[in-house]
Computed example of a mutant assay.
Amino acid sequence: MTGLIPAVRDSAIARVNPVAKLAVAVLISVTLLLSIDVVSASVALLLVGILLFWSGLDARGFWLRTAPLWLAAPFAGLTTVLYGEDSGAVLASLGFATITEGSLALGVAITLRVLAIGLPSIVLFATTDPTDLADGLAQVLKLPSRFVLGGLAGLRMVGLFVDDWRALGQARRARGVGDANFFARFCSQAFALLVLAIRRGSKLATAMEAKGFGSDLERTWARPSTVGRPELLLVLIGAGIAGVSITAAVLAGTWQFILA
């Protein structure tokens, strides 16, 4: 796991096979999508928050990685409050939108649900090295190696794109190109980055093809990807979070199966 910082690399969750992390994220997400209520989302968010203590992320790393989610969740809830289905007593009328007890409760439930679904997904994969994920997808889930290795190569290029964007910006500023108009500078620089990405992708594809990555023969792998007790324990914890959330909502009488 060379792509992770030492504190994260040595954490309990980081040592678990990425396939198990993927299974837990999917399990919790599917469970929370079955109903839109406050109780199940609140319970799941609380239990997931306890689980995240073993991720190895410090406070700065956690907030940096989850910042978009903390911005998107309230926005999704506010949109639901303003434009969601009206039910119950009217709390406020803004002319263009009406806030009722039902839309307010639905907005809170949506906010909590977005957080409960997004937080474990972000943090679990923040503790996953891309190479380990590719090994797990190919060896455990038996996905096509060409697809897995192509995705891994593309993921490894993300860091280079950031460096390329910075270098392009510095070069254009040194030549005095596009400084007067931010929108024009952004569009032209984005087009230059797209051209550079296509060229690099073509060269990378040719190099991988020359090294036999496109062969139909069964591949061998430098590092075996296995599942054992830690993976089983993490999946059981994820199943427990999903089960407790559903049980709490059913006992509280708030569970509403959306497919019913």
Rank of each mutant, 00 (worst) to 15 (best):
G107I: 01
A59G: 05
D216V: 06
W165P: 00
C187P: 00
G56T: 03
L133R: 06
L57I: 01
R172Y: 09
V123H: 10
S55T: 04
W221C: 01
T127H: 06
A249Q: 04
I198C: 12
I99W: 13
F186C: 01
V43K: 06
L143R: 12
L259C: 04
F191E: 13
L91K: 08
C187T: 11
I117M: 14
G150E: 09
T66A: 13
G238K: 08
L119W: 04
V177E: 15
A25Y: 02
A252R: 06
R166M: 07
T220P: 00
P130I: 11
A25W: 00
G178C: 09
G49S: 10
I28Q: 06
L52P: 01
F62V: 06
S225I: 10
L115Y: 08
T254K: 06
I117P: 02
L51V: 13
P144Q: 04
D135Q: 13
G84P: 08
F183S: 03
S145E: 09
I50P: 01
I99V: 15
I28N: 03
D10G: 05
A7M: 07
L234H: 07
A239W: 05
F161L: 15
R65F: 03
G154Q: 09
L149G: 01
A72E: 00
G61I: 04
V162T: 12
A12G: 02
L27D: 05
R200C: 09
T111D: 02
G77F: 00
D10V: 03
P230L: 07
F161S: 11
I241Q: 03
T31G: 12
I117G: 03
I237R: 05
G150A: 11
G102I: 08
F96T: 09
A25Q: 05
G214H: 14
R219V: 03
T128N: 04
A171Y: 10
A174R: 09
M208A: 13
W221A: 01
L251D: 01
T79G: 15
A174P: 15
R146T: 12
L204T: 15
A242Q: 11
L137K: 06
F96C: 07
S11P: 02
L34D: 00
V162R: 14
R9T: 06
L119R: 01
F147N: 02
M157K: 04
K211L: 05
A134R: 02
G150F: 07
L193R: 08
R65N: 13
A20W: 07
G228H: 12
L137H: 09
A23V: 15
L152A: 09
E101K: 04
V177R: 08
W221T: 02
A197W: 09
I258Y: 11
L46T: 12
R113H: 05
G150Y: 09
L259F: 14
L64F: 10
V177W: 14
P74R: 01
